[in-house]
Deep mutational scan, measured.
Amino acid sequence: MPEGSASLQLAVGDRVVYPNQGVCRVSAIDVKEVAGQKLTFVTMRREEDGAVVMVPEGKVLAIGVRKVASAE
């Protein structure tokens, strides 16, 4: 991610809310080559049905992904 860009610090195992998809758990953060460029992807699995969603790390905030609020 370019320096100075806002990002959401995620780790494998974090629970997040993905708008219009529901609650997901981060299952992987991997670098993949797409069209000759190396990009970091956040892979999330929906808790409702296990569907897998992959989002480029740089788009996580723009999409509206946020961490699940704690009970505290």
Rank of each mutant, 00 (worst) to 15 (best):
K59R: 09
I29M: 03
D14V: 03
Y18E: 02
A6W: 08
N20L: 08
Q9F: 09
E57A: 15
I29N: 00
A35T: 04
T40G: 04
Q37K: 14
V26C: 00
A11P: 01
F41S: 02
R15M: 13
K38A: 06
K38N: 07
A71C: 08
Q37A: 08
C24P: 00
Y18W: 12
R46Q: 03
D49N: 06
A11T: 09
E72N: 12
E47H: 03
L10G: 01
K67L: 15
P2M: 10
A69D: 11
V34R: 04
A71R: 10
K59F: 14
R15E: 05
E3K: 08
Y18I: 14
L10M: 04
G36Q: 02
L39R: 06
A71D: 13
T43F: 08
A71Q: 13
P19H: 06
E72A: 10
V68L: 14
V16N: 00
S7R: 13
A62L: 10
V52G: 03
A6M: 12
C24H: 08
V52Y: 13
R46T: 03
R46C: 15
R45F: 13
K59E: 15
I29H: 01
P56S: 11
N20R: 08
E48F: 13
L10Q: 00
N20Q: 09
G50A: 03
L61P: 07
V31E: 07
V52N: 04
G64D: 07
Y18H: 13
I29D: 00
E47F: 04
P19A: 09
G4R: 09
G13Y: 00
M54K: 06
C24A: 03
V60R: 04
A51N: 06
R15V: 13
V16G: 01
C24N: 00
L8V: 09
L61V: 15
M54Y: 10
V12K: 02
V55A: 07
I29Y: 02
V12W: 01
E72G: 10
L61I: 15
L10E: 01
L10N: 01
R25P: 01
V65S: 05
A11R: 14
D14M: 07
L10H: 01
T40A: 07
E48K: 11
K67V: 14
G13M: 01
G50W: 05
L10A: 01
D49W: 03
V16I: 13
V60K: 03
S7Y: 10
A28K: 09
V17M: 13
V68F: 06
R25S: 07
V17D: 09
C24M: 14
P2R: 07
